[in-house]
């Protein structure tokens, strides 16, 4: 479970790391411990699966990945794990989920594809559709970003 100390560390790490020569010094002094102990705490959060990674979060559009599509798929129940594994195998796919389907809503699988060209997105979608024999799917492109932030948990 999460302790109070975890929450203090998470609270700090969900912020932007300062560009100081020793960026963890401030956090160490707030926690009253050494920088080595702060680093151990970060590694510990990672080991426990609470932190997926520590590092830079890019604005993918500015980084040259200007095409971002969400693809919704109607995948038969018995094929969802195969579909999930196959979709996950593409480097260009950042997210892949099985989701609840409200009444009248056909799509149960979702993936996000990021690429530098539109052709890459089309190639991946075709490969997935053919491999799984899925006919009902829909590509929805982003037209405008209305909000994009990182979650503030504590």
């Amino acid at each position: 479970m999460m302790g109070e100390r975890d929450k203090i560390v998470i609270k700090k790490l969900q912020d932007d790391l300062p560009l100081d020569r020793e960026p963890f010094r401030q956090l160490a002094s707030e926690l009253g411990c050494s920088q080595e102990e702060v680093i151990q705490a970060i590694e510990d959060l990672s080991r426990r699966g609470i932190m997926r990674r520590f590092g830079a979060v890019l604005r993918h559009h500015n980084a040259g990945y200007i095409y971002n599509a969400m693809v919704m798929w109607e995948v038969p129940e018995e094929k969802v794990d195969e579909a999930g594994a196959y979709m996950a195998s593409f480097r260009e796919i950042s997210h892949c989920y099985l989701r609840e389907t409200p009444p009248g809503w056909p799509y149960n699988m979702y993936c996000m594809i990021h690429a530098r060209t539109e052709a890459t997105i089309a190639r991946i979608v075709t490969a997935i559709a053919e491999k799984l024999g899925v006919k009902n799917y829909k590509i929805v492109n982003s037209v405008r970003e209305l909000k994009k932030t990182s979650m503030v948990y504590f």
């Binding site: 998470i10 932007d16 990674r53 590092g55 604005r59 979650m151 948990y153």
Partner: peptide
Amino acid sequence: IRRIGGVF
């Protein structure tokens, strides 16, 4: 770079 930090 939007941020450098933990991704939870």
